[in-house]
Computed example of a mutant assay.
Amino acid sequence: MPSPSHHTQDLRIDSLHGKLFVRIWSPDHLSPSFEQAPIVLFHDSLGCVELWREFPAKLAAITGKSVVAYDRLGFGRSDAHPGELTYGFVGDEAEQAFPTLKDHLGIGEFIAFGHSVGGGMATHCAARHREDCLALITESAQAFVEDRTLEGIREAKLGFQQDGQLERLAKYHGDKARWVLDAWTETWLSPAFAQWSLEAELERLDCPVLAIHGDQDEFGSELHPRQIARLTDGSSRVLLIDGCGHVPHREQPEVVLEAVVQLLR
């Protein structure tokens, strides 16, 4: 496979509260094209474009589609977030940043792929823009607030108190690292967030859905992909990967890539 640098394009686009960093991967050495629905990636709570690593290049190569990823406001190479996250932040992505990205790049039809909380954001985007969303892929997504999720977050919060851990996060988020960590832990652990779920958005979907989950995911049980499939129509499929944790696209990328190819066929 050619080096990703041979077929990537980096952009910074204006949004309501600051600039968003965007990267586009194109199959082989082609220029970015959105004539065929691109795959749009939504990162996790501590994630950013760089932390997708080589997965988007592989995804573009194996599907023949352009792949688009962006850093949410406050993350990675995007501008700082102007304040604290609201408890509606998962759904806000479908109303604010994603339409800005879609309009700026001239994206019509698209395929949404979200990891962890990005899976919830991808679900909202698929429901809100259902006339253009051809398929939804969730990976390690949370469909509701589960005790297992909260316990995993509490353990991670303790881990970040150890020397050097916040500095590791700063490698990707710079001086926004503390905000990124608090936005994840304090929002999810707040009692005000306890009743959050994706139920209403899942019930609105009418596109094929693939719910990928590792059977050893420390941030959510297999109840989440089962819930996603149950609340969507008959074109939904659950892929539970044996011996896999919270990041299947890094731990077992070939399994994830093959499942995406099968879905898009």
Score class of each variant (00 low, 15 high):
residue 1 M to D: 12
residue 6 H to L: 15
residue 8 T to H: 03
residue 10 D to N: 14
residue 14 D to H: 13
residue 17 H to A: 13
residue 22 V to P: 05
residue 23 R to C: 00
residue 24 I to Q: 06
residue 25 W to L: 10
residue 26 S to G: 12
residue 30 L to N: 14
residue 34 F to N: 02
residue 34 F to T: 02
residue 43 H to I: 06
residue 45 S to K: 00
residue 46 L to N: 05
residue 47 G to S: 05
residue 49 V to Y: 03
residue 52 W to R: 03
residue 53 R to K: 15
residue 58 K to S: 15
residue 61 A to Y: 07
residue 62 I to G: 02
residue 63 T to N: 05
residue 64 G to D: 13
residue 65 K to W: 00
residue 69 A to M: 14
residue 70 Y to P: 07
residue 74 G to Q: 02
residue 76 G to W: 07
residue 77 R to C: 05
residue 79 D to A: 13
residue 81 H to I: 06
residue 84 E to L: 12
residue 86 T to C: 12
residue 87 Y to G: 09
residue 88 G to V: 02
residue 90 V to G: 04
residue 90 V to D: 01
residue 91 G to I: 06
residue 91 G to A: 02
residue 92 D to K: 14
residue 92 D to H: 04
residue 93 E to Y: 10
residue 93 E to N: 11
residue 95 E to Q: 14
residue 96 Q to V: 12
residue 96 Q to A: 10
residue 97 A to K: 00
residue 100 T to M: 09
residue 100 T to H: 03
residue 103 D to V: 07
residue 105 L to K: 04
residue 106 G to K: 10
residue 110 F to W: 08
residue 110 F to V: 07
residue 111 I to E: 04
residue 112 A to Y: 05
residue 116 S to F: 10
residue 118 G to D: 08
residue 120 G to W: 00
residue 122 A to N: 03
residue 125 C to D: 08
residue 126 A to I: 12
residue 129 H to G: 08
residue 129 H to F: 14
residue 130 R to G: 09
residue 132 D to P: 02
residue 133 C to H: 06
residue 136 L to R: 03
residue 137 I to V: 15
residue 138 T to A: 12
residue 144 F to Q: 13
residue 144 F to G: 04
residue 145 V to L: 09
residue 149 T to Y: 04
residue 149 T to D: 03
residue 154 R to D: 07
residue 155 E to K: 12
residue 160 F to I: 07
residue 160 F to R: 09
residue 162 Q to Y: 12
residue 166 L to Y: 03
residue 166 L to I: 14
residue 171 K to H: 14
residue 171 K to W: 00
residue 177 A to G: 05
residue 179 W to C: 11
residue 180 V to G: 07
residue 184 W to N: 11
residue 186 E to R: 10
residue 191 P to C: 10
residue 191 P to G: 12
residue 192 A to E: 15
residue 193 F to I: 00
residue 194 A to F: 03
residue 198 L to K: 02
residue 202 L to Y: 01
residue 207 C to M: 15
residue 207 C to F: 11
residue 209 V to F: 01
residue 210 L to N: 08
residue 212 I to T: 07
residue 213 H to N: 14
residue 213 H to P: 08
residue 214 G to A: 11
residue 215 D to F: 09
residue 216 Q to K: 13
residue 217 D to S: 06
residue 217 D to C: 11
residue 219 F to E: 01
residue 222 E to F: 00
residue 225 P to E: 09
residue 226 R to A: 13
residue 229 A to S: 12
residue 230 R to S: 11
residue 231 L to A: 04
residue 231 L to N: 01
residue 234 G to E: 15
residue 236 S to T: 04
residue 237 R to E: 15
residue 238 V to P: 00
residue 238 V to G: 01
residue 239 L to C: 10
residue 240 L to F: 06
residue 241 I to F: 00
residue 242 D to S: 15
residue 243 G to E: 07
residue 244 C to M: 03
residue 251 E to I: 05
residue 254 E to G: 05
residue 255 V to S: 02
residue 260 V to C: 13
residue 263 L to H: 00
